[in-house]
Computed example of a mutant assay.
Amino acid sequence: MTDRLKTLADAGVSIWLDDLSRERLRTGNLEQLVKEKSVVGVTTNPSIFASALGSGDAYDEQLRELAGKGVGVDDAIFTITTDDVREACDVLAPVFSGEPADGRVSIEVDPGMARDADATEAQAQALWAAVDRPNAMIKIPATEEGLPAIAKTIGAGISVNVTLIFSIDRYRAVMDAYLTGLESAKEAGKDLSSIQSVASFFISRVDSEVDKRLDAVGTDEAAALKGKAALANARLAYAAYQEVFSSDRWQALADAGAHVQRPLWASTGVKNPDYPDTLYVTDLVVAGTVNTMPEKTMDAFADHGEVTGDQVTGRAEEAQQVFDALEGVGLDLADVYVVLENEGVDKFDDSWAELTQTVKDQLEKSA
């Protein structure tokens, strides 16, 4: 079954696991996924850490130790999460040494800072220093306020995973922030070849929001468009990526050793049971991209996923036709993106609050 995942990897798609927990690390599960399922990276977010801390006893010993030292909740979260990411970086180190573009583990800034560029940049620096591994990536939300923080963090020589990208316009702004950061790093004399970045373009949430609005329209024409928006959005994003990373501005940076900012397909677990459970993997195969999957999606692809060639390159015109049709039935796509970004930040913020409460309760229990 894992041969299907190897076929995906052989097609040039980097498979990253969208999950991390101390239990995975302690049991050797993560190392097993690297060896047996072609996993070459890990992404985390506040929801993942909230789930990990809220179940099992893998963190009990460290929580007792931190409670005994009188460590506060925020510092405890910082210590616990950076410890996990550091250990995961070490597990992925052999992949990193073989191919620097992969072997990466992402850790996200506090989502409560998503609208504060200075606070985001400061925490990005702190997380990078604490994890202290060259194959770490700091995850920064692509809010409008986050764009300057992305540029400054890249400029400081720190690798960044830009998350919560929904619209093509924002994606273009993210790529501009990346190039601006690289230009600053180059001016400061930093080694551009040591800086990596991915741009996490969210997939399934687009269909969830658009499909809901199409149902509200209620026409046959609207119903025929269900399940098409997310893939069209991603294909238009890829066309924008090709444009930016073939520009003269980019070539000057590439000549100085810079790496492209790879598109990463995020939120690839299918939420609508009417759609194939591998839809956002099979239909987004294109070399040089990352697909970060929950293990459930990874297992589904290993069982019955198919690689039928490049499903993205050269399909921008077709994708634009889908968008034109969506607007034709009355969908306000700009509003869709605003809603999705706000919901994304709020969900991570809620998860951070849950994580904070869980750690607070366990510290008090362990004291």
Score class of each variant (00 low, 15 high):
T219Q: 05
M137R: 06
E31S: 12
D361P: 01
R170G: 09
D176R: 15
F245L: 02
N161H: 12
G12D: 09
G56N: 02
S193N: 10
R86M: 12
Q261R: 06
S200Y: 00
Q311W: 05
N291A: 09
M137V: 06
E99S: 15
L63P: 07
G103Y: 02
K139N: 04
W16F: 15
D116E: 04
L179R: 13
E36S: 13
E36W: 13
D332W: 08
Q125F: 15
T143I: 01
T27I: 06
A334F: 12
A223S: 09
A173H: 14
Y280S: 03
Q123M: 13
D191R: 09
R235Y: 04
D102A: 15
I107V: 08
L147Y: 00
G288H: 04
D310S: 07
F301T: 01
S38C: 06
R172N: 00
G257N: 06
N45D: 02
G227E: 10
A230N: 08
Q311E: 11
K228A: 14
V40Y: 07
E144K: 14
V338Q: 15
G12P: 04
A136Y: 02
G309C: 05
V95Q: 06
V162N: 01
G189F: 12
S193R: 11
T43P: 07
L8K: 05
A300Q: 04
F166A: 06
V71P: 05
T289K: 10
D220L: 09
L127S: 07
E343N: 09
D346E: 11
L127Q: 13
R262I: 01
A136R: 04
D60A: 15
E306S: 06
S200F: 01
G181L: 10
E209C: 14
E343V: 06
L63H: 14
G344M: 08
R262V: 03
V206I: 15
A266H: 01
E87T: 13
N45E: 03
A254H: 07
Q251R: 15
V13Q: 08
L225D: 10
D90W: 05
I138N: 06
L127N: 10
L355K: 03
E354D: 14
Q320K: 02
V359K: 02
D207R: 01
P263W: 09
S167Q: 00
Y241T: 02
Q321S: 13
Q251V: 03
R172F: 00
